[in-house]
């Protein structure tokens, strides 16, 4: 009897921990991103008013998704929609300097994933690829792949940007919040809390060599459904 109570408590505390982590991520919309986007939009109000209006609407939808309250899970389709909006906003700032390739297999779109598990990875990629780029004349390339692998769905977020010291990444995944890309540790923890320790993030990176983050998600997991 006590064993069951303990398990229930463990479950409850795990859920609370996850909720806290999602809350932390929700609050993470970068002010830098917000004000730079608004600044770019302000410029377009004058030079391309239709585009400015469009961008404002995308901005509203983007923040709406990030502030969403119901449920800890979503579909890959929804998450990728948010990613696309984010990239549209970043492209308003960077123009041709941000080159994005999306390769999404339609059959994995309905797969259920934790809310904000891909979005932060893309934000990191844009930061590595552009904000820490070495030159304004070089374009940053970002690739997002999602494909079906039997009973799993695999999502890869790859950039050819500045890369990161693998030791720093190890520390971030171990929970060290001092690393800039706080999203990494957070996403990893929630993936593992949801699907088990086998389903953490796999990060391939090195200074000056770009970054690739791989997310594996089981297509059918007990107790996981989009809210």
């Amino acid at each position: 009897m006590s064993g069951q109570l303990e398990l229930a408590e463990l479950d409850a505390s795990r859920n609370r921990a996850m909720e806290a982590e999602v809350r932390a991520l929700r609050a993470q919309i970068s002010p830098h991103f917000v004000y730079n986007s608004l600044g770019a939009i302000a410029s377009f109000v004058r030079t391309d008013p239709d585009r400015a209006r469009e961008l404002l609407l995308e901005f509203a939808d983007f923040t709406r998704y990030s502030f969403r309250r119901h449920g800890d899970f979503t579909t890959l389709a929804e998450e990728l929609r948010s990613v696309e909006r984010y990239l549209l906003l970043e492209q308003a700032r960077f123009g041709d300097r941000l080159q994005v390739t999306l390769n999404i297999a339609p059959e994995v779109l309905p797969v259920v994933i934790p809310f904000l598990s891909i979005q932060p990875l893309v934000e990191n990629a844009v930061r590595h690829g552009l904000e820490h780029a070495s030159s304004v004349d070089e374009a940053g390339h970002l690739r997002i792949l999602a494909h079906d692998r039997g009973h799993e769905c695999v999502v890869e977020v790859e950039d050819d940007g500045a890369g990161e010291d693998p030791e720093k990444v190890r520390r971030a995944l171990a929970g060290d919040a001092s690393l800039d890309s706080i999203g990494l540790g957070n996403v990893d923890a929630r993936l593992r809390a949801t699907f088990g320790d086998d389903y953490g993030l796999v990060v391939e990176t090195a200074r000056g060599a770009g970054t690739k983050v791989v997310v594996r998600v089981p297509k059918f997991a007990p107790g996981v459904s989009a809210g």
């Binding site: 730079n36 600044g39 770019a40 302000a42 410029s43 377009f44 004058r46 030079t47 308003a92 700032r93 960077f94 123009g95 304004v136």
Partner: peptide, 12 residues
């Protein structure tokens, strides 16, 4: 400024 829209706006 490395971002063209920001550069345009400030210049303007």
């Amino acid at each position: 400024d490395d971002e063209q829209p920001a550069l345009d706006e400030l210049g303007f």
